[in-house]
């Protein structure tokens, strides 16, 4: 069983590398043999630019520092979304009163995209860092609340009944049944929330910033520098991928019992 698991892990890595190499080949062929070359640089030019930016400054900073600036914004906004969203979602899922109070407000706010909050964020918090954290937080929080709510409300009532029969009190049922049963769903929300945070950071850095991956893309657009735009996009993609993988690792540690989490 263990051998099979290791094989499938190796297989996943091989497929991952193949798909990336395949993408680069298709990109290169498209640029070499079609009119795409007028608007799109070769992948090797972009990768070369990324390599160069590790030591040479774009604007005032080297690429890793720009990424760090975006990462900090994402972490603050995302962390806020987690500490507000997970308890709210669980409250809605566990308590009828909690659901009756929170859900109508949540349903009203849910369809509003995170980016629609930009004007209000500027008016409320100015053009500093706080407005960026706010936009990232409201962008990530919806999926986090929704999934925590789904996890807590869909707990198998047979298990709750069995725990009650065995003498568990409401607090124990919450701690030992509701919470662990909700964890996979909560992590699904955290994954979607993380992607939303990265989408939002670009928009947030458009407000006014002099650093960050979004800033690299925006200034690239203003100066017509396609290579810089693509370098910013690829950097975001790579860091996003790393963070999602890290989150999956944590999930595997916490949900080793769950086949999907393994």
């Amino acid at each position: 069983m263990k051998k099979k698991f290791q094989n499938s892990k190796t297989e996943t890595v091989v497929y991952f590398i193949c798909s990336l190499v395949g993408l680069l080949i298709v990109w290169q062929l498209a640029v070499s043999f079609t009119s795409l070359q007028k608007v799109m640089p070769s992948p090797f030019v972009v990768l070369g630019f990324i390599g160069q930016s590790l030591t040479q400054k774009i604007g005032g900073k080297i690429l890793p520092l720009h990424i760090l600036a975006s990462l900090k914004r994402v972490f603050v906004g995302y962390f806020l979304a987690c500490i507000i969203g997970i308890p709210l979602g669980i409250l809605m899922g566990c308590s009828k009163t909690g659901k009756a109070i929170v859900k109508p407000i949540f349903e009203l706010l849910r369809p509003i995209p995170g980016l629609a909050w930009i004007p209000l964020a500027i008016l409320w918090f100015g053009i500093g860092e706080t407005s960026k954290y706010f936009i990232i937080c409201v962008s990530a929080i919806v999926s986090i609340i929704l999934n925590a709510y789904a996890g807590a409300s869909q707990v198998d009532q047979t298990l709750v009944g069995a725990a009650r029969m065995l003498g568990a009190k409401p607090a124990q049922i919450f701690l030992y049944i509701t919470l662990p049963a909700s964890v996979p769903q909560i992590f699904a929300g955290l994954q979607v929330g993380l992607s939303s945070s990265w989408m939002a950071v670009i928009a947030a850095e458009m407000i006014r910033a002099n650093e960050g991956a979004g800033w690299i893309i925006t200034t690239g657009m203003e100066s017509g520098n396609t290579v810089q735009i693509l370098a910013g996009m690829i950097s975001i993609g790579l860091v996003g991928l790393l963070l999602a993988s890290l989150l999956r690792l944590i999930e595997r540690g916490l949900c080793s019992w769950n086949i999907q989490g393994r």
Binding site: A163, L166, G167, Y176, I177, V183
Partner: peptide, 26 residues
């Protein structure tokens, strides 16, 4: 103690931990 028709094992606990659940809360 009630043994139900449906499976009522907690999937995040091992067999041993499932068996010990009731004893721990008691």
């Amino acid at each position: 103690a009630y043994i139900m028709q449906e499976y009522s094992t907690m999937s995040w606990l091992t067999v041993k931990e499932n068996i010990q659940f009731g004893m721990k809360v008691r």
